[in-house]
Design a protein around this nucleic acid. Structure first.
Lengths: 342, 342
DNA sequence: CTGAAAGCGCTTACAG
DNA sequence: CTGAAAGCGCTTACAG
């Protein structure tokens, strides 16, 4: 490792290392001249302070911990991209962990991050999370926590979310306006905040168009589509209904892809037999067959906002009095032929 | 933060804190009984050692640094998933950074990671990298470096790569066997190891089938398809050729998606007019139109192998004498109708 | 404006 | 088998 220490600079320059330390971090009563000499020399030899020593001393690590459900999920990988971009800009190291939808993993990862003394936490909960107590403690002990995407009703804190209700309202409305009557909804675990909100938007649109809500048309994939079998079961059940649906509104990337794959495999024509439209952030909705009408979430933006908010909280001197909740608009992208136009 | 320290345990148990420290980390001459008492108590109060203090003392951080081109690229996000899974298993924190294909970013990120005293580095270089000197130094100073995916000819070290040459050979051969004669190849920057290897496999297959290699049929996207314009230019140039190609073999995810999107937009039928097949790890090749024949790289596996190798190097007592190079097989996935069958 | 000293929480060589 | 002490590289209250 780079072996230069404060001491080396000090002895090279004939100063005490307290002076060097102070010169390097400005805002202290140090003569202009000394400061410049020190800085010039430090630059020259590319001095890098030992972060471990600084952390130990300052009780700050300039790092933030992130917990997502799954790194390789396209929505989350975009969020992470956004978080990293802010981390880089503000010089915070980002430590990424995943729960893989297991509450045990989640808790362990969270404890890991906390034992690494991260300065703050960015969290998207798994569906059956039991980490809320730990997060509360952490928050109380002065390490800020910002939730994004999947939040908890059990813990009031800062939040950055997409307008899930509005998004699913718009998408459902779009289907209704194009003449669909029996719109099914395949979504993830009913305990997830995002699932609850998306269901709400769906119901709201139905009500507005006087379409009675039918419990049987709503199906849950408890693992959010991580297992194709659960989506398969959902689709099968829908197809078996007396009056099977004429459209399916899907609530996530994986569920959307699964649903289309399954319908393809069953040779059920989209959109002639059943229309599909859904939440999706995956890379290429325009080239799938048929081009898919989607609600796109501002994932990159969400990561950026959440990271910015967190860093602001970390760096604010005075304790933050009120919790912020940032709601980001979703975008309805209508693509030809995914649903029959009226 | 959890305020329990060694000292607290020591005073609670009436021991010196050196004894507590030793009891906690086994393999030392400590009586069975004391050890158990200490461990039981530590468990009870959920003692977590202060990582910063340990790092400072041990010059080890139990963390590994990762550099990829772009987190949200589906190939890399799968690799990261694999790396994280091993990090979790072996209790190493993973610090992820991205170069965004900028050599300046790359260098700065690398310096960041090194100044955080990571125990090892997992690197996929950007196409015009100038970080190799720094990496050499790092490696010499005892911090192991493992390259994956995109490697450098300038620096002999441990490597984990896909069989790019074999993959592109297989894919090209598949096209040739199905009667295509003028096969174009759109690939990324000619300086990238993966691009060189894929070009090689392409040439090898052509030679085997006595198809003369034609320079004009090879196009480079210097940003690896991050800008759709560069792929558009490549496709345009190919279409303008006297005898325009009957198939395009694409060398990466983004280039594949771009190419299909562009051909769609130009209303050029795939595969009737031009067949497309390419390297791709994106989530749903089966539902794109038409279902795409791809070479799939074992991305998750690559991340796992690279992380395992790195951690083995970190933990090996004796310096490693020989560099390992692990080559992972790629998988040709033939899907209906992406190319006309003979 | 600058220096000497204490201390952050650990680990480990040195005694006993 | 256990303890007292030094030291990892910083920062900062205390003197001057």
């Amino acid at each position: 490792m780079s072996a230069t220490k404060l001491k080396d600079i000090a002895s090279a320059l004939g100063l005490s290392y307290s002076t060097v330390s102070r010169a390097l971090k400005d805002n202290y009563r140090i003569s202009e001249e000394t400061r410049n000499r020190v800085k010039a020399y430090a630059d020259k030899i590319k001095y890098k302070p030992n972060l471990a020593a600084q952390s130990l001393r300052n009780n700050r690590t300039r790092s933030i911990g992130v917990l997502v459900s799954n790194i390789s999920n396209s929505f989350f990988s975009e969020v992470l991209d956004g978080i990293e971009s802010i981390g880089y800009e503000k010089n915070y190291q980002v430590m990424i962990t995943q729960s893989l939808e297991s509450p045990e993993n989640e808790l362990k990862q969270m404890e890991n991050l906390i034992s690494r003394s991260v300065d703050g936490l960015l969290v998207s909960l798994c569906s059956t999370s039991n980490s809320v107590e730990l997060l509360k403690e952490t928050h109380l002990s002065g390490t800020p926590v910002v939730f994004f995407d999947r939040i908890s009703a059990l813990f009031e804190t800062h939040k950055v979310v997409a307008d899930n209700c509005g998004g699913s309202y718009n998408l459902t409305k779009h289907l209704l306006e194009n003449g669909y009557k029996k719109i099914a909804h395949i979504t993830s675990s009913p305990e997830l905040s995002i699932a609850i909100e998306r269901l709400e938007g769906y119901k709201k649109a139905l009500a507005e168009y006087n379409v009675p809500f039918d419990e049987e048309l709503v199906k849950h994939c408890l693992h959010g589509g991580m297992l194709i079998e659960e989506t398969e079961k959902a689709v099968d059940e829908l197809l078996k209904l007396e009056k099977s649906p004429d459209a399916i509104m899907t609530a996530s990337d994986r569920i959307t892809i699964n649903t289309i794959t399954i319908l393809h495999n069953k040779n059920i024509a989209i959109p002639e037999k059943i229309a599909v439209a859904g939440f999706s952030n995956f890379s290429a909705p325009q080239i799938i067959a048929p081009p898919l009408t989607t609600i796109r979430q501002p994932a990159f933006e969400m990561g950026k906002m959440a990271a910015e908010l967190l860093i602001r909280l970390i760096e604010s001197k005075k304790p933050v009095d009120a919790f912020e909740k940032i709601i980001l608009e979703t975008e309805l992208v209508v693509r030809k032929s995914t649903i029959r136009k009226r």
